[in-house]
Design a protein around this nucleic acid. Structure first.
Lengths: 215, 215
DNA sequence: TGCAAAATGTGACTAATGTTACTTTAACTC
DNA sequence: GAGTTAAAGTAACATTAGTCACATTTTGCA
């Protein structure tokens, strides 16, 4: 594991030391749910390794993707909710084996006034998540499913650092709140343009995929 | 105008006094744009009177509604962006004559460590806006236009404290990123159910409107 | 090897929304 | 009160997405 100061270069050394002394490091296997809708949150959550997925669950159990969290990032929901012991409105799940740090709430409050770098880190976290949500809203409000699918694939590849996507069409449909047939059809169309290749449970993005397509 | 401590009961007296001494009160006429997409934000914005509308502008100038801000609330975008002098990703506009307070950034940073109540107020603001965005996402992702329209009308009536909505169908269509004909059709349907009555430039919500309909 | 389960493919159909091209109505101005 | 303009109504049509009912393929494993 990388040392903390490389993972969180924005944070000042004294703070990092306090973090190390007071927070709990936890290794989470892939596909484990960390926070459920309605659950009360008792500590803030920083990602050290791996990738977390933030999503909204719909009535049928579909997992509508909001965004991914990468190492060095913090779960904004936990930052906001923890300090008021509020119930979460979203689900958090590990998409691969991940390492997280759990920071007790009381400390967060202290740090806020004690460490400028913590204050800025929290603000930055909010800003980034806000922008992420704005981007999502833009997509579902203004774009068609084909563009949303492309955006989704790009993001997934980026979050998983691989051009190979191991998901069934059904899973993708869930995350976009669409249906399998629609996703299959659209994928096929993109395959015909030679931007990716399809096989059971895998989508291989070709180099061309990142070109000619809008973001 | 109501005294500040009634408008912002969460904030401690000493802080309110600092606010009064240091921030600029500004009266804004109706339909004036306060912040544009891409604009750099130099001060945080608190609503004292009136209603502000936060929206995203699309390519054709359509004003896609995100949410309204009411007295006692702060513009989260300005809180986040101001401290980093970042460009706004959204537009802010007064929907009626409004009074706002503009707080210089440097003070915000100080207050954060000086006044616990400010810290909590800011967190609460983030939490509320986050939830607002989540609600919006739920609607555009999971609901059809008819439900979104109803939700929109309810919100509008609430923000304007009146059952009479003075908007053209075109304006509503813009805010929902739909088209006039669609909105006209749907409104007509709701009118047939006797939940509202239509006339040129006005929609009158009847009492029944708030019943039998889902949120 | 051959079967079962899961994943994917396909075509026909429906529903929702958006578009086009008008007409009609209401309100305002001169 | 005639003419002008903005708003609203309307019908036919196009497009997108979702659904249904299967057929086909892949893969693991009995």
């Amino acid at each position: 594991m990388q040392p903390l100061y490389k993972m969180f270069p924005q944070l000042e050394p004294a703070l990092l030391q306090e973090i190390e002394e007071n927070s709990v490091l936890k290794t989470i296997p892939a596909d484990e749910i960390l926070i459920r809708t309605g659950q009360y949150i008792k500590s803030a959550l920083l990602v050290v390794e791996g990738t977390l997925k933030i999503f909204r669950e719909n009535e049928d159990g579909g997992e509508f993707l909001m965004y991914y969290l990468q190492p060095g990032e913090a779960c904004a929901i936990s930052l906001v909710c923890a300090s008021k012991m509020e119930a979460s409105k979203v689900m958090v799940k590990s998409v691969e084996e991940s390492v997280i740090m759990m920071v007790p709430i009381q400390l967060m409050d202290q740090w806020m006034s004690k460490y400028k770098s913590w204050y800025y880190y929290v603000l930055e976290t909010y800003r980034n998540r806000f922008e992420e949500l704005l981007l999502l809203i833009d997509h579902i409000a203004f774009r068609n499913m084909d563009e949303r699918l492309i955006f989704y694939l790009k993001r997934y590849a980026q979050a998983h650092k691989s051009n190979q996507i191991n998901l069934s069409h059904q899973q993708i449909a869930d995350e976009l709140n669409s249906s399998r047939e629609v996703i299959s059809r659209l994928l096929k169309k993109i395959e015909q343009k030679k931007l990716l290749s399809l096989s059971r449970n895998t989508i291989e993005l070709k180099d061309d995929f990142y070109k000619n397509l809008m973001s």
